[in-house]
């Protein structure tokens, strides 16, 4: 069932286009990496602040509001480049453990970011907030690093 879906993905024109080109895969991959760097900055400047580092004389909420458009932009860029990369080799990815680790990580980190971590960053500084933000920041870094590392590891298998 799932394998059938991946087999269908292999027939999508966009993926074939990427496979048949000598340059397209590397170029899209490079843009994927550029977006990863943007994500790193937009995520870390807030997570480090929640952990008590970096821009400590600014509120977490202010740092977060400034980073948010760049976070969204980075995630959009990563998904927009990730889809053609995926479509170029869906069967290989179906059998790749690293790919499934990465997808599981994404399935956790995306809802975590938008429903737990971002609201925590915006919460009013009252009792227990700092500890909750610290936890959210640490988890955010850990989860994104796992996703990025698993993503890199796809290339080694």
């Amino acid at each position: 069932m799932l394998l059938e879906f991946f087999q269908w993905c292999e027939t999508v024109r966009l993926g074939r286009l990427v496979v048949e080109s000598l340059w397209l895969f590397p170029v899209i991959e490079a843009v994927h990496l550029l977006s990863l760097s943007m994500l790193g900055g937009a995520v870390l400047i807030v997570d480090l602040r929640m952990l008590g580092f970096g821009l400590t004389d600014r509120s977490v909420a202010e740092v977060f509001r400034n980073a948010r458009p760049w976070l969204i932009g980075a995630i959009v860029g990563l998904i927009a480049t990730g889809i053609p990369l995926f479509l170029s080799e869906p069967i290989k990815l179906y059998y790749s453990t690293s790919f499934w680790v990465k997808m599981s990580g994404l399935a956790i980190v995306l809802p975590f970011t938008f429903f737990i971590r971002n609201p925590a960053a915006l919460s009013e500084p009252v009792r227990h907030t700092a500890r909750r933000q610290m936890l959210a920041g640490a988890l955010s870094i850990g989860l994104w690093v796992t996703v990025a590392a698993a993503g890199r590891w796809i290339g080694f298998s």
């Binding site: 990496l33 990863l36 760097s37 943007m38 994500l39 790193g40 900055g41 937009a42 995520v43 870390l44 400047i45 994104w144 690093v145 990025a148």
Partner: peptide, 8 residues
């Protein structure tokens, strides 16, 4: 890269 270029 996420740390270095990200913060840069």
């Amino acid at each position: 890269l996420m740390l270095f270029v990200g913060m840069t």
